[in-house]
Computed example of a mutant assay.
Amino acid sequence: MDAVVEIASFENAPCGFVAFDDRGKILEINARLADWLDRERADLLGSPVREILSKASRIVFETSLIPLLKMNQKIDGVSLDLVRRDGTKLPILLSGERSGTGETAVTRLVLLNAGGRRNYERELAEARATAEAQLATEAKEGELREQFVAILGHDLRNPLAALSSAIRMLAKSTTGDRERLIAAHAEDSIQRMSRLIDTTLDFARVRLGAGFELDLSGSARLGDQIQLVVHELSSANPDRKIDLDMDLQYKPSCDVWRIGQLLSNLLANALCHGDPEQPVSARVSCKEDALTISVTNKGEPIPPEMMEQLFDPFKRPKTTSKHGLGLGLFIVSEIAKAHEGEMQVASDSGTTEFSFRMPYSPDT
């Protein structure tokens, strides 16, 4: 009974089997392999084993594999093609072992159907090529968009500066209160547009890989820059109170204008999203270990789902009705990185605090 089961398993095993002698004549072949070839098993016995291979595979088999079998007695995982009765090819993976010598030598081969694997590999290669082409196209389009934004922003500066100069001249020459008010509103709009252009250019510069070029020559003027930023935002928001606590015991090596931009963006964010009835607090300190800047506002906490995205570009709370590009905190983060500093955020039921810390030592 066991012998019958063994023979049946061999004939219908999920792999092909063929044995041939030293002259290449088939001595044994199982039913599975005969079925793959669409040939009668009896017709294959005694025929040359090379006949079940495609023309290209015969060359590889006879010039490479047979010599390897005679030298090493075995081969593993060789990819070849069988040929069916109708001439179509069947890809297989072949492993074999040779025993005996001379005319008594017998070679036994086990063959696995590799059609599915080859199709999978081909589809995988095609999918990879398609994905790489798509990524290359998207990268090129993204770079072109960012270059366009940078060029456009740069070209907008000159006419905007000319327009601002003309409005200031008109404001000086006019005597009517209504005309001066209109000129003041126009100048405010121009300044806001200028800030939007600067932010857009900063974003494009970062995305293009240029980053921020720091000017460390004006560190002594940091205090003046901080005062100027607070004054500008207080003037732009006359109904809001900004409390400033500044303690600069040392003059840190930093880009004064960029640090001012960082503070300005944090204050603008606090004024925009904080409780309008409560003051915004700014603390600037430079002691022996670090330069620190923190901005605190009262009001609703930042939603938990927004915390991890605060410094991503174009991210704003969906509930806000304020205007802006959603780039302010992204620029803050990039300025902090350029100074080898870090940003931290804490927000609870009553207070939100953004803090910047740049390690600093007076001896460096």
Rank of each mutant, 00 (worst) to 15 (best):
E6R: 08
E11R: 12
C15K: 15
F20W: 02
D22E: 07
R23P: 04
N30A: 04
A31G: 06
L33H: 01
L37W: 03
L37R: 02
E40F: 07
I52S: 00
L65R: 03
L68E: 10
M71S: 14
D81P: 00
K89D: 03
L90Y: 09
P91S: 03
P91D: 02
L93H: 13
G96S: 05
T101C: 10
V106L: 01
T107Y: 01
G116E: 13
E121C: 11
E121I: 11
L124P: 02
A131G: 03
Q134D: 09
R145Y: 15
V149N: 01
L152W: 15
D155P: 01
L156F: 07
N158Q: 15
A166S: 09
A171G: 08
T174V: 05
L181A: 11
H185S: 10
D188A: 15
R192H: 11
M193C: 07
R195H: 13
F203W: 04
R205F: 12
A220L: 14
L222S: 01
L222Q: 03
D224S: 10
I226A: 04
L228W: 12
P238C: 05
D239P: 02
I242K: 00
L244I: 03
D245I: 13
P252C: 05
V256D: 01
G260M: 07
L266N: 07
L266K: 13
C272Y: 02
D275S: 15
P279L: 02
A290T: 08
A290M: 06
I293Y: 10
V295W: 01
E300Q: 12
M306L: 12
R316K: 12
T319W: 15
T319M: 11
H323F: 11
G326S: 06
L329Q: 02
L329C: 08
I331Q: 00
E334D: 04
A336L: 06
S349M: 08
G350D: 14
F356M: 04
M358V: 10
P359M: 06
D363H: 11
